[in-house]
């Protein structure tokens, strides 16, 4: 009886909000068809996939497809690299983007701001292959652009392609270079959303630029930052294969600081195309990401309920 009443109550509520529900409907349908329908296919991670037998009749092999990840003894290194790079990308990236968008929108002239923004936006459109080509042509020992500059000014160029220690810095810089302009857009839009009259009032009250930024702009950007963060941590175990693979390639002398899960998987499956193993890795990354996100979201919910995703 109670359940029935509950349903009736839901239906009544749904009827009351039917326009809002309808407004969400296209998106819901989209995610059903694009994300949820294929989802049961994750099961292939546990199968020896036979094209003719499909998802239901292919032989079940349990955890076998996950084994190659853990038998190598590399897992710790891979996890460490993948996570540290992601943390660096998230933190450094967001801080720089936030700082840059605040400074540009607060102080710079319109023309300077627009020009700088357009230019910094460009690297986002360069594919990883080209980025690696650029980096190689900048820093290779024999004839790199920077190497030539260093030598021209009497210095001694470091052999960066055999210096594993240099690569975390290089990779973070390259990532920053490529994503800053793009990432700034969000912060910039958020700043645009700040009520100018608040700024005006602060100015009248005698707040200087730094104070206004600290007291008004940064707090206003906090929700945006939190959301970006919550989205990013879901992919904490997912690496940007294109970036790492193209920059480092077969240079295994750099692997100690550059090998991430994706590149490892790629090398392991180089000569054996195996869909099931690919799915297994994806599943592993998703489950961990899901756990981290749930933890972070509930943490956020406790501190600032408004900022939580759900």
């Amino acid at each position: 009886m109670e359940a029935r009443a509950k349903i009736a109550w839901h239906v009544k509520k749904a009827a009351k909000y039917k326009t809002l529900l309808l407004m969400c409907l296209p998106a819901i349908i989209f995610f059903i068809f694009m994300s949820y329908v294929p989802l049961p296919g994750m099961w292939v991670a546990f199968l020896r996939f036979d094209y003719n037998k499909g998802l239901f009749k292919s032989p079940f092999v349990g955890w076998k497809n996950f084994e190659f990840l853990f038998t190598s003894g590399q897992m710790w290194l891979l996890l460490r690299n993948t996570i540290l790079y992601n943390v660096a990308f998230i933190l450094v990236g967001n801080v720089v983007q936030m700082a840059l968008s605040i400074l540009l929108s607060e102080v710079a002239s319109d023309r300077f701001r627009k020009t700088a923004q357009s230019i910094m936006f460009l690297p986002y459109f360069i594919s990883a292959v080209l980025v690696s080509l650029l980096v190689y042509n900048l820093i290779n020992y024999d004839y790199g652009f920077i190497s030539n500059l260093v030598r021209g000014s009497g210095g001694e160029m470091a052999k960066l392609y055999s210096m594993p220690k240099a690569w975390p810095v290089i990779i973070v810089l390259v990532n920053l270079w490529q994503t800053t302009g793009y990432g700034c857009i969000v912060y910039f839009a958020a700043i645009m959303g700040i009520d100018p009259s608040i700024m005006e009032a602060a100015r009248v009250d005698g707040a200087n630029g730094l104070q206004r930024i600290r007291r008004i702009t940064i707090p206003m950007l906090k929700p945006t930052f939190v959301i970006l963060l919550l989205f990013a941590v879901g992919g904490i175990l997912k690496g940007n294969f294109g970036l790492f693979y193209n920059l480092v390639g077969n240079n295994s002398s750099l692997f100690s600081t550059t090998d991430i899960i994706e590149t490892y998987v790629y090398r392991s499956m180089l000569n054996s195309f195996n869909f099931s193993q690919g799915s297994a890795v994806g599943l592993f990354q998703s489950v961990v990401g899901f756990g981290v996100v749930m933890a972070c979201n509930s943490l956020v919910k406790r501190i600032e309920p408004d900022y939580a995703l759900f």
Partner: peptide
């Protein structure tokens, strides 16, 4: 619609949408 504080299903729908970004089926099923 999802930011309307008076919309009762907003959290459920949000979760439904968000969840899809965490789990993807992978290349072959898709």
């Amino acid at each position: 619609a999802l930011q309307r504080a008076d919309f009762p299903f907003r959290n459920a729908i949000m979760f439904f949408i968000y969840f899809s970004s965490l789990f993807s089926a992978g290349l072959v099923p898709f």
